[in-house]
């Protein structure tokens, strides 16, 4: 019985790998995508409870992906946590404005990430 279903999206396969290891060890069920297109497809097909999303990906960066998901009924309510290597203001504010719940810079602290994931899942389950 998993603690929750998470979709991890990052164009760096090693980051996906390390995140998967970490989250699975915590008891989450993890699925992955490496670009915006794949992320959208998997989100619709699998209905994860949370998406960990890298902003700076080719083929539709994170913001665009989120907007697309928000416009589709089945995926509009899936919470998203942004992962980014960029700390520019614009990215930060855009992340906030898109109704995104949390924003984590790379390299991150595993504890910080796990706490954010847990917090986010708790909140969205309460609201459901």
């Amino acid at each position: 019985m998993s603690k929750g279903r998470i979709l991890v999206v990052d164009d760096e396969p090693e980051i996906v790998e390390s995140l998967t290891l970490r989250l699975q060890a915590e008891g989450y069920q993890v699925s992955a995508a490496s670009d915006g297109l794949g992320a959208t497809r998997k989100a619709i097909a699998e209905q994860p409870e949370l998406i960990l999303l890298d902003i700076g990906m080719p083929a539709g960066n994170g913001h665009v992906v989120v907007e697309r998901l928000r416009n589709i009924a089945e995926t509009s309510r899936i919470p998203v946590i942004y992962l980014t290597a960029r700390t520019s203001e614009a990215d930060y504010h855009q992340a906030r404005a898109g109704g995104v719940c949390k924003y984590i810079t790379k390299p991150f602290d595993a504890e910080v990430l796990l706490a954010a994931v847990e917090g986010q899942l708790e909140r969205s389950r309460e609201l459901a």
Binding site: E12, S18, L21, R22, A25, G56, K106, P107, A110
Partner: peptide, 22 residues
């Protein structure tokens, strides 16, 4: 800096994973 942060993330996470005995 963007390029630097990515491998840095990988190094840190994998070291962390082994360190945390995952």
């Amino acid at each position: 800096s963007h390029e630097l942060r990515t491998p840095l993330t990988v190094i840190k996470e994998f070291c962390s994973l082994v360190h945390d005995e995952v």
